[in-house]
Nucleic acid binder design. Sequence first.
DNA 1: ACGTCGATCTCGAAC
DNA 2: GTTCGAGGTCGACGT
Lengths: 265, 265
Amino acid sequence: MLMSDARSPQSLSIKDPSFDEAASVLRRSLSTRRLIIVVGNCRVDYEGRANSSLDWGERVLIVKKDGSVLVHRSSGYEPVNWQPSKCLFRIEAEKESLHIVAARPQQRETLSLHFNRILSVDSYELSDRGEFNLYVSEEQMKEAILARPDLIEEGFRPIVSEKNLGEAGFTDIMGEDSSSNLVVVEIKRVPAGKESVAQLNRYLNSIRKNLRRGLRGIIAAPELRKGTQGLLATMNLEFREVSPQKCAEILAQRQTRKISEFLRE
Amino acid sequence: MLMSDARSPQSLSIKDPSFDEAASVLRRSLSTRRLIIVVGNCRVDYEGRANSSLDWGERVLIVKKDGSVLVHRSSGYEPVNWQPSKCLFRIEAEKESLHIVAARPQQRETLSLHFNRILSVDSYELSDRGEFNLYVSEEQMKEAILARPDLIEEGFRPIVSEKNLGEAGFTDIMGEDSSSNLVVVEIKRVPAGKESVAQLNRYLNSIRKNLRRGLRGIIAAPELRKGTQGLLATMNLEFREVSPQKCAEILAQRQTRKISEFLRE
DNA sequence: ACGTCGATCTCGAAC
DNA sequence: GTTCGAGGTCGACGT
């Protein structure tokens, strides 16, 4: 190893490298788990769960320090080819090309790239401890409903969440209403369509047998997609408007209460 | 515009640019629809279908020529934040930071980035006309079965593909066996589990009423996930091993035949 | 390891 | 425009 880790710069960039240079940077960056960006003319072949080939063209290759691989074209949100993390690599500089193979050993999946021209190779040591927070997931809507069951209706009492129904899957929330009917709540963060109705119906069907009391199914979502109302009525199911925004407010309140309780102790 | 498109280089790279320089490169690259890579210390806020915040850290920002945006951390296949194509941008160089806003007007979604240090800005004009081909999708397995119905069984005759059953969805293939039973085939490219059984059963149930002849349901997949065999037997359904590889060979043959037929004309 | 489900899913096709 | 299903989905969580 010519360059010690301590002295390696945070970023390293070579324009128009030779294939040998590129291979050298790649190998060193992989072993020191840096993020690598290669831009150049390449073709890509994938073999695994399916097979794909991508003819010659200029693209961006990113290899991350966890061994994930992305091949991006000049357009499109999604990578044209990729490999999830924990890949193993083989790098070979040939006379007229650079050959990179990224393999996932257990899944028997390989991604193979041939570069016949490299515009640039960049390697970065990225320091990133920043916390990522996502607000108002379906999970958080569930928390909000558990904290404030009247979001479903007055007198609703949750009993269990994520009840395993075996075949049918998992209910989001099960509980009782004020008349002791069993209530199954299906939560959606986005407007609910017929697939949500089908899902809820599956849950109810798997519960209905052997049940001695009333059973209600409620979809809690910001809205129903059009055409879903009729289906819901046919199935004798119900809808409650529960918006992610409202849930966020409730969770924020709960957070505030937590803090105030802490201060009083 | 200081630099004409004709004279702009295929790749442009600035290390440790000032915020003004970075903003200038970004604006120019956006207007000329080049692919842009910015590496630096940033925080990211997203508001739209959900909300998210990402604290300071060093990341890779990619803006593509269709207006899609990717923010990648040093690990992980998926971008931590993103925006699909057709974004509109606002770029502002401030005293101590570069502010980038990528908005999707109709979806009311915005992604906001603040950089307080920029390691590099790179802009590329990528030429990429390469064709992408994915082999052995479920669609292609269907084609293979339609081309060679004996993949299902000797004497199987497909009648329709993608038959709409309304409520229940679409069958992959419907046909008849040698005893004139109606046969519904559900194709899976990956090992079939109980959800495939349920799906096939839905199709059969929606057909069974008013049917005067025998009805069979067959799952065509490379294999059954374990535990699925019993369910299949209980439901009186059947399984045929149909591998994507075999389908690929058949499609390749068909392709060959096409070519040979062409040569004979 | 397998199974299930959510996702700012994205993308495309059909209606 | 909306709806619907597929995806090399990925990733997380549970068994």
